[in-house]
Design a protein around this nucleic acid. Structure first.
Lengths: 210, 210
DNA sequence: CGCGGATTTGAACGGAGTCAATCCGCGTGG
DNA sequence: CCACGCGGATTGACTCCGTTCAAATCCGCG
């Protein structure tokens, strides 16, 4: 697993709604979540915005800034969080001293690329219900990896934010949650979700259409 | 610019339609295009597919395999191409010997992440016309960087493939090309495109809607 | 020439968006 | 303690953009 404790860095606390960085700011550090949740948001010049990532504890983000030396998106914490801020120069020196760190970092980079590819596949090829099903199953899996329940968990995002992440409108997300509930696939109350019939959810993804 | 000539690797030739790697195959190497064009394609279990990337000379791809040791998508050459195949173990040893290479590789990783974020923004937030305009302007810019004309170039992709890349159907792409043509924004014949009014194309992206 | 794949174009459909009303939960202040 | 306000969520009715289906044309190539 991801552990930079050898860097001897301490975590910093952030409050809900606080921005870790904003698009256009000089890139300085990458981030690892210890406790809490973060979303990344890409902005269009006319004000439209798109949630491009949702990050959970132990996950690394902020890598977008390396290419140009400036961040290209915003990162906003979704709840009071503890986040390990890793200055990029520290990371680089570690990287050159330890092949293990080097390989680990390469895998982290690659994992982020794969994550985004999944998102592209979703946004480009899936229907609304499929996206929501994929989203729920992905969350479930990630909570499981963290040692939490895979069948009952909290959405840390509003319907609006979920919609943005999935390329849908909030009303659509809400409607699909209701539909899934009526079909006995999930139970929802507010942001608390319980996956009642995981197999059926997965079927929504697998079954080819016409 | 991207140059791994110090690795002393020679290029290999590939024929149109040939796959450099397929989803599920063991990851071994990354690739740099010398001459030619490559698309990457993500697959859904039911057969649907999504073009996730279109790569031009000097561009690096194949990084998705590092995370899990297996490729997660297909890479297919679009024309007879010369491609530099860089075994990952070679890359790693270079990386540990030279900080310059290490930093360069980090930036390449990051660039790929940023590229995918742009695609996410497109697929999640843009309307069909905006996506096509953004696609054309992106191509134009990349041809310019390669020293080719920024205003007249060849699409290496079919309407089908462009549609897949943009999350649209081929008919929609075709219609929008026609519409742009009628509005005097571009000239199209087959896969040859000329940007007649770049400013107007850019306006399509910038102008906020209602 | 003639075939097959790519492209264009039209007509009709439908899934997700838009607009609007209502509800709900929660914190805040009278 | 309760009224109020406010942002988030739900639901319905209607719209519209992009898809689907279909037909015609183009074009490269054996």
């Amino acid at each position: 697993m991801w552990d930079l404790s050898l860097l001897g860095l301490s975590d910093r606390r952030f409050k809900e709604g606080q921005a870790l960085y904003r698009s256009g700011e000089v890139f300085d550090s990458v981030y690892v979540i210890r406790v809490g949740f973060v979303k990344t948001v890409a902005l269009l010049e006319d004000g439209r915005e798109q949630v491009t990532g949702f990050y959970m504890p132990c996950e690394l983000f902020g890598l977008d800034g390396i290419a140009s030396g400036r961040h290209r998106i915003d990162a906003v914490v979704l709840a009071n969080s503890e986040i390990c801020v890793v200055p990029y120069h520290r990371l680089k020196s570690c990287q050159s001293q330890s092949r293990a760190i080097q390989n680990l970092l390469n895998r982290m980079f690659s994992r982020e690329i794969v994550r985004e590819q999944h998102m592209l596949l979703m946004l480009g090829s899936m229907r609304a219900e499929e996206r929501v099903a994929a989203f729920l199953l992905d969350l479930s899996e990630r909570y499981r990896e963290l040692g939490f329940s895979a069948s009952e968990f909290m959405l840390r995002l509003t319907r609006q934010e979920i919609g943005s992440l999935l390329g849908l409108k909030l009303e659509t997300v809400s409607r699909i949650f209701s539909r899934f509930h009526k079909s006995g696939l999930i139970e929802v109350e507010g942001r608390r979700v319980r996956l009642v019939n995981r197999e059926a959810l997965r079927l929504i993804l697998v079954q080819s259409r016409t």
